[in-house]
Amino acid sequence: QVTPQEKEAIERLKALGFPEGLVIQAYFACEKNENLAANFLLQQN
Rank of each mutant, 00 (worst) to 15 (best):
V2H: 14
F18V: 06
E11H: 09
E20I: 06
A26L: 02
I10C: 01
E20P: 09
E11C: 07
E20S: 08
G21F: 04
R12L: 02
L42D: 12
K7T: 12
P4Q: 14
P4L: 15
A9G: 05
Q5T: 11
E34A: 04
A38W: 10
A9T: 15
E11Q: 10
E20R: 06
Y27T: 00
N35D: 15
L22T: 15
C30S: 09
V23L: 02
L22M: 11
P4V: 11
I24L: 13
L22N: 14
Q25H: 07
N39H: 06
P4E: 14
A29L: 04
F28V: 10
R12G: 03
Q25R: 08
C30E: 04
F18K: 07
N35K: 15
Q25F: 03
K7R: 14
N33K: 06
Q43W: 03
L41V: 02
F40K: 15
V23D: 03
L13M: 06
L13T: 01
A38C: 09
P19Y: 09
Y27M: 08
F40Y: 11
Q5C: 06
N35W: 05
A29Q: 10
L42T: 09
I24F: 11
C30V: 04
I24Q: 14
E8S: 13
R12E: 02
V2Y: 11
E34L: 02
F18R: 05
E11P: 00
N39W: 03
E6K: 03
A29M: 15
P4N: 15
L36S: 14
A37V: 04
E8D: 10
L42W: 10
F28R: 12
A9M: 15
Q5W: 06
T3F: 06
F40D: 08
L41M: 08
E6G: 08
A26M: 05
E20K: 06
Q43K: 15
Q5D: 08
A38M: 12
F18G: 03
L36Y: 11
Q25W: 05
L41A: 01
N35A: 13
I10E: 00
Q44K: 15
Q25K: 02
A9Y: 00
E20M: 09
A26C: 09
F40P: 00
V2T: 11
E8H: 12
Q1R: 06
E6Y: 10
E31T: 04
Q44L: 02
F40V: 08
F28P: 04
A38L: 12
K32P: 00
R12V: 02
L41I: 10
E31Y: 15
N33A: 03
E31M: 06
Q43T: 08
E20G: 05
E8Q: 12
N39D: 07
F28W: 07
N33D: 13
A38G: 09
R12C: 02
N35R: 14
A37Q: 00
Q44R: 09
A29C: 06
F28D: 13
E31I: 00
G21I: 07
N33M: 06
N39A: 10
K32E: 04
P4W: 01
E8W: 04
A9D: 07
Q43L: 06
E11T: 12
I24V: 11
E31V: 03
A9P: 02
A26P: 03
K32S: 06
Q25G: 07
F40E: 09
E20N: 14
